[in-house]
Design a protein around this nucleic acid. Structure first.
Lengths: 179, 179
DNA sequence: GCGCATTCCTTGGCCGACCAAGTTAATCTC
DNA sequence: GAGATTAACTTGGTCGGCCAAGGAATGCGC
């Protein structure tokens, strides 16, 4: 395989000499590539974030908190669009790590207010830098036109995947396609 | 914020009227989109696979087993390029679910031979169909040229992400770029 | 005011995925 | 052939994710 250190992250051997797709995946070559890219991208992000004391996935929560200031947890959940339980547990860990502070909402005793700690705000710059590094690494060798085209195509794919395949078969899809 | 349905799977509201990126992500817009697409794609795949009794991630293992027949577990691990422990646990569950059979390798008492059960082979067709559906859904509205371009760009991204950012700074990168 | 539905969050369970260690068996070295 | 190395899993732990259920506070209907 690679001249890799032997650690797991290498992924799918070199794509250059990638063997033919598995039989069951022949009808979905792009999906296959998306899956691989997704994993590699997450691993790459995780590697950069690890040095900052964050686990992959936590970035998005922190990013929102840095931007929005103190928010109700339910708003945060809507913003990052994760399962409430996922956010709860992640926040418990982020709090314990000192990246986040939580306090009850005085106006609604069910709710919890969340905010990034001052200490964590130092991370903002580093996360931004790491995120930029990741972008450079990801898009290396693509010129501006190609990057724009990739962004456009991915945005379209995102739109497609946002609309349920079964529900709202036509109407919602068409609505989502207005761009 | 958005006119989202509020259901969990919707993800990041409509990308069409996507608010500006978080501050910390401004230098990585494509990376942001990749992350979102990745999650949506995995969710979509998971939904299709769930009906077949598979969890997301297991498809890749099964695909390889269907193609390759009985293989040593170590070869399977290399093929799907996952952590050995991940594969071990996944196989234990797949075995208990009746999708996979495992037996010791007579030639090497350390090794384990794995193969798809006859029962699971019925799944092959359905997985292939689901995978095709996923592809259609993912690429809806893209013409053949756009699909090819997307595939090309993603392949390049995959290549980029395969080469370590720190190690082998130039040589391996250049080697990987031969395509 | 009372009851019922909603909203908000938490807990527990399960899976994929990783790392770190550890065990057993093969292999290489001398 | 004994000893060290390497290869092939396992186990245990941790995280991000999901679903399902549950408890607590709020809001609504009447």
């Amino acid at each position: 395989m690679k001249a890799d250190t032997g650690t797991a992250g290498a992924a799918q051997a070199d794509p250059a000499c990638r063997e033919r797709l598995p039989l069951a995946a022949q009808d979905g070559p792009v999906s296959m590539t998306i899956s691989r890219v997704a994993r590699l991208h997450r691993i790459a992000a995780g590697k950069l974030l690890k040095g900052l004391g964050l686990y992959p996935g936590q970035e998005f929560v922190m990013m929102h908190l840095w931007d929005a200031g103190p928010v109700r947890q339910s708003d945060l959940i809507k913003a990052v669009d994760l399962d409430p339980s996922t956010v709860t547990k992640m926040l418990q860990r982020l709090e314990q790590a000192g990246h986040v502070r939580r306090r009850p909402d005085p106006d609604d005793r069910r709710a919890v207010l969340v905010e990034a700690t001052d200490a964590s705000c130092g991370l903002l710059t580093e996360v931004r830098r790491s995120w930029g590094e990741l972008e450079d690494h990801t898009l290396a060798g693509l010129d501006l036109g190609e990057r724009a085209e990739l962004a456009r195509l991915l945005a379209r794919v995102e739109t497609n995947l946002c609309v349920e395949t079964a529900d709202c078969p036509e109407e919602a899809r068409r609505q989502a396609l207005r761009r």
